[in-house]
Simulated scan of single mutants.
Amino acid sequence: MKVIYKITYPNGKIYIGKDLTNTLNYFGSANSKLIERDFKREEHRDFTIRKEIIWESELATDKEVNAKEVEYIRFYNSNNPEVGYNQWPRFKNEILS
């Protein structure tokens, strides 16, 4: 089973990732230093994150899963540093007029 998941951190920020093997204890490859900047040292002592499977497939190719991951990153806007920790695809701060 291949999955797309959403990790939610205590500050409400999110990370969207994929797991091609659906490993229960895999929590992605978000940049630890980036996340640590948002939390005080004492907050590290009791830290709870939530992992939700938001999409799954037994038949999708790896290429299709990669595309689906980007789709969800854009849908949730998790590459916006104010919203989440995804650093790719690069967030474009476009001001709408």
Rank of each mutant, 00 (worst) to 15 (best):
E69A: 12
I14W: 04
I35Y: 02
V65I: 15
E56Q: 15
E56W: 03
Y26M: 02
S32V: 09
I53E: 13
N66R: 06
Y76V: 12
V83P: 06
D19I: 07
R50P: 02
Y72P: 07
S32M: 04
N11C: 08
S97V: 09
P89E: 10
E82N: 14
Y72K: 09
Y9G: 03
K92S: 13
A67D: 15
Y85Q: 03
I35S: 05
F39D: 10
N79R: 03
N22W: 01
R50K: 11
G84D: 12
G12D: 14
Y15F: 05
A30V: 02
K33L: 09
N66Y: 08
F75L: 13
N86K: 06
Q87F: 04
A67H: 12
E52M: 04
Y72M: 10
Y76E: 12
S57T: 13
L20C: 04
Y15N: 10
Y15T: 07
V3T: 11
G17N: 08
K18Y: 00
A60Q: 06
T61D: 08
R45P: 04
N11D: 13
N11S: 06
K13Q: 11
E58W: 00
L24D: 15
L20K: 09
M1Q: 07
T23E: 13
G17P: 04
E36Q: 13
Y72H: 11
A60E: 09
M1E: 08
I7R: 00
E82Y: 02
Y15D: 12
K6D: 13
E64H: 10
S97E: 13
K63Q: 15
L20N: 12
G17F: 05
N66W: 00
E64I: 07
S78T: 15
F47R: 02
N79H: 08
I53W: 03
I14A: 10
I4N: 07
L96P: 00
D62F: 02
R41W: 09
Y72W: 05
G12K: 02
D62N: 14
K2C: 05
I73W: 05
G17E: 11
K13P: 04
T8S: 03
I49W: 04
F91K: 00
W88K: 14
P89R: 01
N11R: 00
A60L: 02
S29M: 00
K51Y: 00
L96S: 14
N25Y: 08
E42R: 09
M1L: 02
E36D: 13
I35P: 07
K51T: 09
S78M: 07
R41N: 14
E82R: 08
D38Y: 01
K2I: 05
Y76L: 05
Y85T: 09
L24W: 05
E69L: 04
R50D: 13
D38P: 03
E94Q: 14
N79S: 04
N80P: 09
N86H: 10
E43S: 11
D19R: 02
S97C: 07
I7V: 03
V70L: 08
T21V: 14
V70E: 09
Y15A: 12
E94D: 15
P89I: 05
N77L: 08
L24C: 11
I53Q: 04
Y76F: 15
T8Q: 08
P81W: 04
E58K: 01
